[in-house]
Design a protein around this nucleic acid. Structure first.
Lengths: 106, 106
DNA sequence: TTACTATATTCCTTGACAGGAATATTCCTC
DNA sequence: GAGGAATATTCCTGTCAAGGAATATAGTAA
């Protein structure tokens, strides 16, 4: 588990950016306006998110569109699997776990 | 989503502590020895984890046993639900989502 | 109470990181 | 190529958190 994703998400502005990108991909300027964060800060945050593998960029005309990359979220999900037994105590929960494993493998 | 859990997990020593506590509850001294981290640092990290709601403590004789609290992991899991559609693209994945919702409600 | 073990807290220093301001770069249009 | 819009980068500064060292506290046993 690469911890960079946690430190990236821990910063409030970056978390908001991620939540916005969950709805749809957006250019830098739109993130800046929506969140009332100056453009340079947004670009810096996006760099951190990109370095962490959380977002990807594609150019479109004059602007750069950022969107989420699923990989890191899958990574968190896989890691969380180890902890699910903490609260999934019913026996049939085992089926879930096995199903998840199968899904991962497939 | 409370971001404190992310910043708490982002610190490597604390993440290791959490991983050890996933196996079983442990006293401070054992964490210190196993991870080769001085006891005061371990206590500090445990305080951060406790404040974040990730661990709970119970006294046992002379020592204090720390163990994971499932709540925050469930919180992450619930939050991740919003992102699963990023990679669960097959139609039958919808069943999963509905099943999760039902489970949460129940 | 005294001695001992286990754990928590305080103080200090250092390094990392976020925001502000200014500037550089890239890309489109003309 | 020139001008302008969108975005990235650099430099600076203040804040915060982590580790080291020392010390305080709590709980146990005699």
């Amino acid at each position: 588990m690469n911890l960079v994703i946690f430190s990236a998400l821990a910063e409030p502005s970056r978390f908001q950016i991620v939540e916005l990108l969950r709805v749809r991909p957006r250019p830098v300027g739109e993130l800046s306006e929506t969140l009332h964060i100056r453009q340079p800060q947004v670009s810096k945050h996006l760099k951190v998110l990109a370095d962490a593998g959380i977002v990807e960029m594609r150019p479109h005309a004059n602007q750069r569109i950022y969107e989420l990359s699923p990989k890191k979220f899958q990574e968190i999900d896989t890691w969380l699997n180890n902890y699910r037994k903490l609260w999934e105590e019913r026996f049939d929960a085992l089926d879930k776990v096995l199903e998840r494993e199968k899904k991962k493998a497939g």
